[in-house]
């Protein structure tokens, strides 16, 4: 009996990706840091660290604190800035045959479109992910990301600036009462996909000193502990919109990744678990087909829960 290998490809807007495993923004650098042990080429794609117009130095220490099953971070969007990315990083990613989603954050509504216009002059990227959900910066980030009206406006401006053959993803925060409403706003604005979720707000306390550990008090919680939260948010989002949902949050194994397809995701991103295992996403790509076959599915789409529509 001949076995047809599962179809792993996924189409998001005008772009078809070879497989649905991506690295999450901020957890795998610019896709160039592990080429010796985990090349970016075989992945569905790399989502870059969020880029801003100017380089950013980020927050003061402490920046991360390990929790028993997760991680609190307050990096503060430290990044090299869009120009250094275009000049130094993107050409190398292209050389490595990486499929690149560029994560972007603007200071105001217009700056997202300005960043895309800058990007549009260069080849070698498949799409952008608008980071409308970073909890660790004073301006922007969550300010935009909790308001459906602004999400729709920013998405529409970005879509207008985006070349027609590129994919537009909007990354959402779970720190709202209805992520479905945010997703609908992004869909309305013309997003090709929504990415769920950015980090969950968290606080660690220094009891002795009677204060929070992080200077900004609140930090972003990620890692295995948030997997059930992310699955719930993806489920809610998949019920709210008809564009693809990219699931992210707590993935540490191929079965964690596949769980997202059951609740309606079309692709997934691996984040925090890449820190202890930088080759994890690459290994998941290798394991994907065999595990699907074991589960009797011809494509990840077949994993989708029938009750999802309900």
């Amino acid at each position: 009996m001949s076995q047809v290998s599962p179809d792993l490809s996924v189409q998001i807007g005008p772009v078809t990706f070879e497989n649905p495993i991506f690295t999450a923004s901020g957890t795998w650098g610019y896709g160039l840091e592990y080429t010796d042990i985990a090349p970016p080429g075989p992945l569905g794609g790399v989502v870059t660290k969020t880029l801003t117009m100017e380089p950013r130095l980020g927050n003061t220490q402490p920046r991360v604190r390990e929790q028993p099953h997760g991680l609190l971070n307050s990096i503060g969007l430290e990044n090299v800035g869009i120009n250094a990315f275009l000049g130094e990083k993107l050409p190398r990613l292209r050389f490595l045959n990486a499929s690149v989603i560029v994560s972007l954050a603007g200071r105001d509504e217009d700056e997202f479109a300005t960043l895309i216009q800058r990007l549009a002059q260069f080849p070698g990227w498949a799409g952008v992910e608008l980071n409308l959900s970073c909890p660790n910066v004073a301006r922007g980030g969550l300010d935009f990301g909790q308001d459906p009206v602004r999400i729709e406006r920013i998405t529409a401006l970005a879509r207008a600036a985006l070349p027609a053959d590129r994919s537009l993803w909007v990354k959402l925060t779970p720190n709202v009462s209805s992520i479905g409403d945010l997703a609908k706003a992004a869909e309305q604005g013309g997003a090709h996909a929504v990415t769920c979720i950015n980090t969950v707000l968290g606080v660690e306390v220094n009891l002795q000193e009677r204060r929070p550990v992080f200077p900004r008090a609140v930090a972003g919680y990620s890692g295995p502990a948030i997997l059930p939260i992310a699955l719930a948010k993806v489920l809610e989002t998949a019920r709210a919109v008809s564009i693809p949902v990219v699931g992210v949050g707590g993935i540490g194994s191929i079965d964690d990744a596949l769980a997202f397809f059951v609740v309606g995701a079309s692709a997934v991103q691996v984040g925090t678990s890449l820190f202890p295992e930088p080759d994890l996403a690459n290994r998941m790509v290798e394991q994907f087909s065999a595990r699907l076959t074991e589960l009797g599915a011809a494509s990840p789409r077949e994993l989708r829960w029938e009750g999802l529509a309900g």
Partner: peptide, 23 residues
């Protein structure tokens, strides 16, 4: 310093350069 990745990726372990213009 507390480290996340050990490879320059997560930006957890940074300290300002002497001039303060980079981490």
């Amino acid at each position: 310093e507390q480290m996340g990745c050990g490879a320059g990726v997560c930006r957890a372990c940074v300290i300002p350069s002497a001039s303060g213009d980079r981490m």
